[in-house]
Deep mutational scan, measured.
Amino acid sequence: VSSEIYQWVRDELKRAGISQAVFARVAFNRTQGLLSEILRKEEDPKTASQSLLVNLRAMQNFLQLPEAERDRIYQ
């Protein structure tokens, strides 16, 4: 997982004009609270716990989908 993931998520929230709650639900089936905590802490993926890595990997995989497909999912 790239250490850029945190910025990618922030950029996607702005680009798509969606809330953290929507992104958390569709990208990795978690709550806004968890996403907020992940973004606030910005732990280095190289030293992250296994559970954090699973979530970061799910977010990264979601962000690799084509933009149009992500936008459809947000609706």
Rank of each mutant, 00 (worst) to 15 (best):
V1N: 02
V1S: 05
S3D: 15
I5G: 00
I5K: 04
I5A: 00
I5L: 12
Y6Q: 00
Y6H: 02
Y6A: 03
Q7C: 13
W8E: 15
V9L: 07
V9D: 01
R10A: 09
R10K: 12
D11P: 03
E12Y: 00
E12V: 03
L13W: 00
L13A: 02
R15P: 01
R15H: 04
R15N: 05
R15F: 00
R15S: 01
A16E: 02
A16P: 03
A16N: 03
G17H: 15
G17R: 13
G17A: 06
S19V: 02
S19Q: 05
S19N: 13
Q20L: 07
Q20I: 05
A21R: 12
A21W: 05
A21T: 14
V22S: 09
V22H: 07
V22K: 06
F23G: 02
A24N: 09
A24Y: 03
R25A: 10
V26K: 04
A27V: 07
F28D: 01
F28I: 11
F28P: 00
N29S: 09
R30W: 05
R30F: 05
R30G: 14
T31R: 07
T31S: 12
T31G: 10
G33F: 09
L34R: 14
L35P: 01
L35Q: 05
S36G: 10
S36C: 09
E37H: 07
E37W: 04
E37R: 07
E37F: 02
I38L: 08
I38A: 06
L39W: 02
L39A: 02
L39V: 02
R40D: 15
R40A: 13
R40W: 09
K41N: 12
E42I: 01
E42H: 10
D44N: 13
P45G: 04
P45R: 02
P45W: 02
P45H: 00
K46G: 14
K46T: 05
K46S: 11
T47P: 03
A48D: 02
S49P: 13
S49Y: 04
S49D: 12
S49C: 15
Q50I: 10
S51A: 14
S51L: 06
L52W: 03
L52G: 05
V54E: 15
V54C: 13
N55F: 08
N55W: 05
L56M: 03
R57A: 10
A58R: 11
A58P: 04
A58M: 13
M59L: 09
Q60D: 14
N61I: 07
F62W: 05
F62K: 00
F62S: 02
F62T: 03
Q64T: 10
Q64F: 10
L65C: 06
L65R: 15
P66N: 07
E67A: 10
E67V: 11
E67G: 05
E67H: 08
E69H: 07
E69I: 07
E69S: 08
E69M: 06
R70D: 01
R70V: 02
R70P: 01
R70F: 00
R70Q: 01
R72E: 15
R72W: 09
I73N: 09
I73Y: 06
Y74P: 02
Y74S: 01
Q75N: 13
Q75T: 13
Q75S: 14
